[in-house]
Amino acid sequence: MTQNRSWIPYLLILPTVFFLGLLFIAPLVQTIWLAVSDNGMPSLANMRTMMIDINFGRSILNTFLLTLVVVPVQIAMALAMGTMVSKVNGGRETILWIWTIPLGISDLAAGMVWLSILQNTGYLNTLLFSMGLIERQTAWLTYQTPVALFVGIAVAEIWRGTAIVMIIIVAGLNQVPKEFKEAAEIFGASPWTRFTRITLPLIRPALQSALILRTVLAFEVFAVVYALGGRNFPVLVGEAYNWQNQNQNYSVAAAYAVLIMVISLIATLFYLKVIKVDPERLP
């Protein structure tokens, strides 16, 4: 009976395949074609235009630097937060809820929030001034203060994107039965050893998912950067946006889009290879 109905699963997934094809694969193919063609002929001209542009090197550097700083800090913070929240009994949900508030804020709004803190007339300057630490309003977000600008953007990104990592990590931590940690404790493992030798290996799948998701999102960083730094801090998506809107050059914008996609795919592959998840070694 199951044999002569083998077409049913295909029928059921057909709509999703159809819409995915329509709304994702087709534009993807189009974008790639746009990037590697010129007047309907295959060409690397767009790639060349992208690469010789003055902002290209800086946007790659900035994007990678931001990713390298933001992602590890977020993973570390999420692990610390997840571990702490697993220790509390009452009010656990409330704490998690408060921690996830930044998730509900769009990234442009998040950028605005931090702009209101860091801009010349912002809360930070007001605070520093009232404490007598600065004499007059100080600019933090200009091209003359690249370090402050970078730190400001990194902090805003960390604030905005840690919750999603934490949710994945907390889900992973919940999967680890407490007896494993208790057994390790009985046999003399210190809290740190329990964390590194028991908890971390057992939440590998969650860690892998969080890293992939967070890294891919980090390469796509845009709105927060745009709100805080404008064009003072070029990043890859920002450049794509500029080529598309300011320069009206869809082909170079497409070249950026393809570049971002390739980087994301490589990063994902990297995590899949480096953090191997062997189902045989999971609880």
Partner: peptide
């Protein structure tokens, strides 16, 4: 005293054998 300072070993009812 924390468990590790009690000088004992334990076999858990659900084994708690480390899967990894």
């Amino acid at each position: 005293l924390p468990p590790k300072d009690r000088g004992l070993a334990m076999v858990f009812q659900n084994y708690a054998v480390f899967p990894h």
